[in-house]
Design a protein around this nucleic acid. Structure first.
Lengths: 110, 110
DNA sequence: TATAGTTACCACGACAGACGTAGTACGACA
DNA sequence: TGTCGTACTACGTCTGTCGTGGTAACTATA
């Protein structure tokens, strides 16, 4: 079976992550599992890709982080929440996707 | 209007170019114009992107070049021809596109 | 008791495709 | 004379992805 290459997905990791934050905050490990489940194991995001996307998107103001320090065993977990700016960015990217898809499909045979 | 970003198209320039070589050899300037026309001005490939794609794909064995030295005014023009390996690569990338599109659309709202 | 697996991250550096800037050179046209 | 179109090329920068490796606590299995 064909596999999804990083060059192909590049630029979409941001909107995949933002989609999963639309309804409620979440954290890295959970998002990673959701991507895997929702894509039916077709796309498994690399941990480094995911966490560097968090850092970048927080810097860009698309998401905000907060830490849950009260987990069992004294563990911490960093949650991310989408901002209004992030929602705008997500919407714009969805429109861009529609346009891009139309363009690319002109060059796809069959 | 939304514009196509480089990150989004990244990884597809190769198949866009290969598509335009499927039926006959062509050269940089012509391919650049064809992309623009076929996409109805929605995607205008950068010259540096196009010519570096030629170099890379020739190195990978997807295309072969030959020079037409008999143009008016003593000018030269470098043509590119798709190889059987390039055709296989193109086909594989089209399949990958179908899969990728399905995955991404699970994360697109509306 | 040992050890492998799951959860939940982070740091560092490398890589490759896309792009910005700039330059070459010829012909046509105003 | 100067701009536009044709047809490239060189050089360096940027950025998202990924490989490698590390930390640390709990949980199931042998």
């Amino acid at each position: 079976m064909a596999e999804i290459s990083s060059d192909v997905i590049r630029g979409y990791n941001d909107i995949i992550i933002l989609f999963l934050l639309l309804n409620s905050p979440s954290y890295g490990y959970e998002i990673s599992k959701q991507i895997r489940t929702m894509s039916e194991d077709k796309y498994i995001i690399k941990e480094t890709t995911l966490y560097s996307a968090f850092t970048r998107m927080e810097k860009n103001g698309f998401i905000e982080s907060f830490v849950d320090e009260d987990l069992a065993g004294g563990k911490k977990r960093t949650y991310y929440r989408i901002t209004p700016v992030g929602r705008d960015y997500y919407r714009a990217k969805c429109e861009e996707w529609t346009l891009t898809k139309e363009v690319i499909e002109k060059f796809i045979a069959g």
